[in-house]
Design a binder for these strands. Structure first.
Lengths: 159, 159
DNA sequence: CCTTGACCTTCCTGTGCATGGAAGGTTTAT
DNA sequence: ATAAACCTTCCATGCACAGGAAGGTCAAGG
């Protein structure tokens, strides 16, 4: 009696749970194309297939996909996401490892912000010095041409 | 005798003005590989060739390369640099066009800075809340997994 | 004269992160 | 029967180069 109920429930849940790639795409907000891509690079495990060859996904795939989405949204590379996923699935992980990964990523972000801000400052200065009228004279072009002032573009030569 | 000497000298001088790709690379700090690439996509005009098929560059190419370098250093895309180069070479340009291009680029940079700063703030917050010890508990992973905060409770399922 | 090594050439592949499309099979609805 | 809405694989594209293979060229030295 009891066993039969459980079996029934299991079968029912089992039958209800699988979804095709389109549904997973809708549920996750990640395109079917990208889901296949994630599978191909190992971010998602290879989905099982139904008789017609269609991929069948489970709820766990949806969870994984959402995890990936959030991590990518924070700028983590696919490689980092792979690492984060493995840490997530590892009950024996230490949070220090996760934190270290996050910090390395933050440093990377900081570098990029600094680079962009340097560019922004230079551009802002140049734009302010450019009249922006119908005449051809333009300090922006002059500077790019290396006319007079030495502009530090942030990327120094290495020779 | 004399004529031959002069001819020799002329040829030698002529030969001195042009440079091979290696020298241009050294003088500009741009790799030979990249110089060829720039030529292939039209950033640099097709270089003339000497009898052996080697590219021969002039000082004008060096100037152009430096222009490209500075523009790239300011984050302009290759496409934008193409535009900037054409404006640079156009005596009938109006500085307003240059300025507009620069401003569009600045807006783009601002957007990227904002995005990165948002990521940075979130990461910083998560990192602060993570103990970073030998235990597995980690708010970073919890957040990526969608543990607590604003996770839709999934009451709008539709199959 | 021949070799060595530093040049140079073209062509193909790989990077990161997908996106777009072609060509075709399957399922469902009308 | 046919359309539409799915699904499949494989190939191409974009950015801005870098790496390397396979081979031609040139100057110096034994």
């Amino acid at each position: 009696m009891h066993g039969r109920f459980i079996l029934h429930t299991v079968i029912k849940l089992w039958g209800t749970r699988g979804m095709n790639i389109g549904k997973l795409a809708k549920n996750s907000g990640v395109s079917a194309k990208t889901i296949r891509y994630y599978e191909s690079i190992g971010l998602l495990p290879p989905a099982s297939r139904s008789a017609n060859g269609y991929r069948v996904f489970e709820d766990s795939d949806l969870q994984t996909l959402r995890f990936i989405q959030r991590a990518r949204g924070l700028g983590f590379s696919v490689k980092d996401v792979l690492h984060l996923l493995s840490l997530w699935r590892d009950p024996g992980r230490s949070s220090s490892e996760v934190k270290a990964l996050a910090r390395r990523h933050m440093e990377h972000i900081d570098t990029r912000i600094d680079d962009l801000q340097t560019m922004r400052r230079v551009l802002d200065d140049l734009a302010h010095r450019c009249h922006g009228d119908s005449h051809p004279e333009c300090p922006i072009l002059d500077t790019l041409a290396g006319a007079n002032a030495n502009v530090d573009t942030g990327s120094e030569e290495k020779s």
